[in-house]
Simulated assay, not measured.
Amino acid sequence: MRTLLALLLVVSPGPSLDPDQPSASGRAVLETGHVDIGPRVRAGEWTIQIHDDHAAPSVWREPADTVLRVLDTAELVVPDDENYAFLGAAAGSTVHVVPQTERPGVVWIGWNTQDPGVLATAGRGITMTLRGVQGPGPVTVFLQSGNLGAPQVLWSSARPVPQPLWVERNTHTHANWVFGAPGVYLLAVGVTAELPDGSTAATDTVLRFAVGDATDPAAAFGAAYSVPSPSASVSPPLSGTGYAFPLGAIGVVAAVLTIGGVLLQQRRTRRRAEESR
């Protein structure tokens, strides 16, 4: 069994998406390949959709008609390291992890702000906010800046909501999504953006996850989100309030998913670095 130690954020500034990419109709279960969550603007209307890059050609899908299925191929063991206590899972236990770098047989979930309508409408960027989590276990989305850096939690079901995350325009990002138990999860998320005229655009949706081979995606389609969540009118943290991580300023870096034994090497590397200061 592999050990969870996903170390580096993947952030990719790049060209915007094709403005003519179609919107798919009908239900879809996405269990492998690259997908991104992101805002989309059409005729002045803001929505949150799922960009399915695994389809050929790529399409946008409605979250209500999409289940992100995290199979047992995503199972990893929680390391015996206090730096990962925030996961809320005991060392040696098994969790399902969608990692920062693509793994065969695991859906690769990220988010982007590359829709041409967003680029034409938003200012410096948007705020993605976790508004609530409904599911059988804890959910954590986190990143690390390097081998010597501590994990940085972006979203956690163990913390009060809302949890705003600032995302610069025209960026494409992957981090680590950790689910503490198999089952159906619903994540209420929102997007807000300050527009050039000083007004604020806001939209919300619910993301549907089926975690574990034994979890029927049909149960995720049929689940109703019932956890009270704050209003979408929460102002974005443009002046540094909330969690404002300058995602677009980092550039592209590699992510690492290690196996057992590397944890000890990481500690030795950290110790040598501290002694050389």
Rank of each mutant, 00 (worst) to 15 (best):
S199T: 11
A220L: 12
A219Y: 11
A219P: 06
Y225D: 00
A244R: 12
A223E: 10
V227N: 03
D216Y: 08
G198N: 07
A214G: 14
A201K: 13
V252G: 13
T192F: 02
I250Y: 15
A220H: 09
A193L: 03
S229G: 03
L247E: 11
A232N: 10
G222K: 10
Y243W: 11
G222S: 07
Y243E: 02
P228H: 03
V253M: 14
S199W: 03
F245Q: 00
A201Y: 03
P196F: 04
L195D: 06
G251D: 14
R208Y: 09
P230N: 02
S235F: 09
S231T: 10
D216N: 08
P237G: 06
V227M: 04
A193D: 08
L238W: 13
S199H: 07
D197H: 08
A202K: 06
G251H: 12
A249W: 13
D213I: 02
Y243M: 08
A214N: 05
T192W: 00
A224R: 13
F245H: 07
A232V: 12
V253G: 15
S239A: 15
V253L: 14
T203A: 11
V253F: 15
A249T: 15
T205M: 08
T241H: 09
P236N: 10
G251K: 14
A202M: 10
P237K: 05
V234P: 01
S226L: 06
I250C: 10
G248E: 14
V253H: 15
E194S: 03
A223L: 09
G251E: 13
F209I: 12
Y243H: 14
D197E: 06
Y225Q: 02
T241S: 14
V191F: 02
P196G: 10
S226D: 11
F221K: 05
G222I: 04
R208I: 08
Y225P: 01
D213C: 00
A193K: 06
V206K: 13
V206W: 09
G198H: 04
A223T: 09
Y225W: 00
G242I: 07
P228W: 02
T241V: 14
P196C: 04
E194Y: 02
A220C: 05
L247A: 11
D213H: 01
A219K: 12
T205D: 09
G198W: 03
T215G: 08
A249Q: 15
A218M: 07
G251N: 15
F209Y: 12
A244K: 10
F221T: 03
E194T: 12
P217G: 01
P246M: 13
S226Y: 00
A210D: 03
T200M: 00
